[in-house]
């Protein structure tokens, strides 16, 4: 039987995968929590709240503890990533050549902070320490594409090009 339920964020979550993951394990013990969370995130791309409740019941770990572990480790995400993941390099070279201005521009344009995803699910952005393209500083990556020697103005044009692709 397939269970699809609506999570608090209004996203529809199919719980079959998390149930399969739990069922496939030889044992279900509280100490398996992190491993199970990793498997579930691999499938869903993030940790949906209803899946966390399934994990809590399955492993006999209180939900408050499950949530505590999810929020403690930076490897775990509580919301899905956007379609396009923007990595803003904030390594030394990019930093001195104005990565901060790019970050501010992104915050204004997208209305989110690093680590968050826009409401339309299109963009996530995060800062990274160095992507090894210092000659192009300040530089960002969107998916596998690299955009170098950016200014806030040029960045805005780049974002527009992605938005146009979606129209």
């Amino acid at each position: 039987m397939t269970t699809v339920i609506e999570s608090e964020a209004g996203r529809r979550v199919n719980l079959d995968a998390v149930r399969d993951i739990l069922r496939a394990r030889k044992e279900l013990l509280p100490r398996h929590l992190i491993a199970v969370l990793q498997e579930v995130q691999d499938v869903y791309g993030y940790l949906p709240e209803p899946a966390l409740e399934e994990i809590s019941y399955g492993l006999n770990v209180p939900l408050a503890r499950v949530y505590g572990v999810c929020t403690f480790y930076s490897q775990f995400r509580m919301a899905p990533l956007g379609k396009y993941i923007i990595k803003v390099c904030d390594g030394t070279a990019c930093h001195v050549r104005g990565s901060n201005d790019l970050l501010e521009e992104l915050k204004t344009q997208l209305g989110i902070h690093p680590g968050q995803t826009t409401e339309d699910g299109l963009f996530s952005f995060e800062t990274v320490m160095c992507i090894g393209a210092c000659g192009l500083a300040p530089v960002i990556m969107i998916g596998d594409e690299t955009y170098g020697k950016l200014t806030p103005g040029k960045l805005s044009e780049v974002l527009d090009s992605y938005r146009r692709m979606e129209e």
Binding site: E8, E49, L52, P62, L63, A64, V66, Y67, G68, T71
Partner: peptide, 27 residues
């Protein structure tokens, strides 16, 4: 009962109920 636990880390560490839900909606 385990209604509360630590969440996040470092300066952001907080004592919270599960899934950041209001206490009234927890165990």
């Amino acid at each position: 009962v385990s209604a509360l636990d630590f969440t996040k880390r470092g300066f952001s560490t907080l004592v919270e109920s599960a899934l950041h839900r209001p206490l009234a909606e927890t165990v």
